[in-house]
Simulated assay, not measured.
Amino acid sequence: MPETSQTTHSPEDMADRHASKMAKKKAARDKIMATKEGEKGLIIVNTGAGKGKSSAGFGMILRCIAHEMPCAVVQFIKGAWDTGERRLIEEHFSNICQFYAMGEGFTWETQDRARDVAMAKRGWEKAKELIRNPEIRFVLLDEINIALRYDYLDIDEVVTFLRDEKPPMTHVALTGRNAKDALIEVADLVTEMTLVKHPFRSGIKGQKGVEF
């Protein structure tokens, strides 16, 4: 059988090919970006069984702080926890980010539905107040999806408010697993965190700096 030879390219050839490929990608990207001119306040939903929903929400809060954009957080479930993000914001950035811890723990911890409902409604009233405030540019509603899942809050009321009363340039992020279909429908950006592996299943408890 005749011998086959593999084509080899010099480092210069490979660099030129890479540069040409990236130039084509940039041109295509620039063409797409040229059609994106509008701005609006987004409704953002982070949901799914995987870890990172609240972490992503607080990442956006930190971006707002860095850009000196007034922002706010309402925590619906983890209010009784001493979390790193709460400590950081309250101790160092309270001048630009308001923080309200309205919950008392997960429903299986309180074991008092009436109290959970009352706390969730109190949190929602505070959330509406913050969202309506024209000076606040971004509001994070942390774990509100859990309150909605257990019907502590009326999903129709939440969706109607976000659709009809949210100021046009205000961003609102809502986190928590099992986001309701109606919320996903009204949202502009929806991310579902997928669980692949979690240390909890191997007997590892939640750890400082990772979970809280």
Rank of each mutant, 00 (worst) to 15 (best):
E90N: 01
E91R: 09
E91H: 09
E91D: 15
H92N: 11
S94N: 05
I96L: 07
F99H: 04
G103M: 02
G105C: 02
F106T: 07
F106R: 09
F106I: 10
F106A: 08
W108F: 11
E109G: 01
Q111C: 13
R113G: 03
R113Y: 10
D116V: 06
D116Q: 08
V117S: 09
V117Q: 11
M119C: 10
A120N: 08
A120K: 10
K121G: 04
E125K: 15
E125N: 15
K128P: 04
E135P: 01
I136M: 12
F138M: 12
L141P: 04
L141E: 07
I144D: 05
I144E: 07
A147I: 07
L148H: 11
L148F: 07
Y150D: 08
L153W: 02
T160A: 11
F161T: 10
K166H: 03
M169S: 05
M169V: 07
M169N: 11
V172M: 07
V172H: 07
A173P: 01
T175K: 02
T175P: 01
G176Y: 04
R177E: 12
N178R: 15
A179W: 11
A179F: 00
K180D: 13
A182D: 06
L183P: 00
E185H: 11
D188R: 06
D188A: 01
V190L: 05
T194F: 06
L195N: 10
L195M: 15
K197V: 01
R201T: 14
